[in-house]
Design a protein around this nucleic acid. Structure first.
Length: 313
DNA sequence: TATCGCCCCCGCCAAT
DNA sequence: TCATTGGCGGGGGCGA
């Protein structure tokens, strides 16, 4: 697949196919949803849950590549970069929704819990489903699509309840690393910090800038973040900078200096040392190696059959 | 929450 | 011109 000349990463905004029902939610098959630019690296401003039923190729998320396998769920959060490389286009179902949709629930506690599950699942990227789990999850997704398409009285609250069930069941199947820790004020602050770090991709990346934005002292933020995650705020910021640097190096044609500037580094020479320290290679080597890897032909050994599903025939 | 001292992160500059 | 490496000093981050 040829690489698209990319001075910047395209951003998909949420645009409903049914604007008369502006609830920030859509669900359907790949063909029905028709997201633009899915073959090119892009970000969205919305969440996306993907159930892959068939296809042949790879799903690239940030700088990781996953062979397309039937009965696999993918969880994408806003800001993540992804695209498909395929010989046979992926088929299955998509659920796309905005954060505003999740926040339409009445209880703040439920909203926070669902968003935390979403973010946790998005960190693991893919969730292969086995045996009966694939069947029950597929049935649930079909119910969600049906509820959305019929759009009977009060359907959006039913959709939110379904989404809560989907997320909760997915969390049960996710690896333990994706599990949630205890809920409390400390955990909420730590999550707000992590969200802000993921969202703010440029500008002042000092710990103080983040603690100011969250209305706490740097010392308090450091204590809470360490207590909840076991890591220092500066480590989490650097990790996010490294992830974003890899995205830009791999998926755009920006020079190293441009990437450095975009990430808020005032000195591209220092950015080079930062990258080598954190990633183990220079930005230039990473770009060349990663691009050579992503330009190789799709692995023919990854051959799929569509999941046998009578409702699809 | 404030303070202090130490470590190393970050930015500036130069060389290749 | 751009990427990489290295020296160096100030100051931010973090533990006590």
């Amino acid at each position: 697949m040829p690489r698209r000349a990319a001075s910047d990463l395209p951003i998909d905004e949420f645009a409903s196919h049914a604007p008369d029902r502006a609830i920030g939610f859509e669900a359907g098959t790949f063909e029905e949803i028709e997201l633009p630019a899915s073959g090119w690296a892009h970000r969205h401003t919305f969440y996306e849950i993907i159930y892959v039923a068939g296809g042949q190729g790879e799903h690239v998320i940030d700088s990781a590549s996953y062979p397309v396998r039937p009965a696999t769920l993918y969880f994408m959060r806003p800001g993540q970069v992804h695209f498909w490389r395929y010989e046979a286009p992926p088929s299955g179902f998509l659920i796309v929704f905005t954060e505003e949709f999740m926040r339409m629930q009445g209880s703040d506690e439920n909203v926070h819990r669902d968003l935390r599950m979403l973010h946790s699942l998005a960190q693991t990227h893919e969730l292969p489903l086995e045996g009966p789990h694939a069947q029950t999850m597929l049935a649930l997704i079909r119910s969600i699509i049906d509820e959305y398409q019929v759009a009977a009285e009060g359907y959006w609250s039913v959709l939110q309840a379904y989404m809560h069930v989907l997320l909760t069941r997915a969390m049960r199947l996710a690896p333990p690393a994706a599990g949630l820790t205890h809920v409390g004020r400390a955990e909420t602050l730590a999550r707000q910090f992590a969200d802000l770090v993921m969202r703010r991709r440029n500008g002042d990346q000092s710990v103080r800038a983040y603690s100011d934005a969250l209305g706490v002292t740097p010392g308090h933020l450091a204590e809470i973040v360490m207590q909840v995650s076991g890591r220092r705020p500066s480590e989490i910021i650097r990790e996010a900078q490294l992830l974003e640097a890899k995205r830009l190096l791999l998926h755009t044609d920006k020079t190293i200096a441009q990437v450095a500037y975009e990430l808020g580094f005032k000195d591209s020479a220092y950015f080079g040392r930062f990258f080598k320290r954190e990633a183990g290679s220079t930005p230039g080597d990473f770009k060349r190696l990663a691009r050579a890897e992503s330009d190789r032909p799709v692995d023919h050994a990854v051959h799929l059959r569509a999941v046998a599903d009578p409702a699809d025939r």
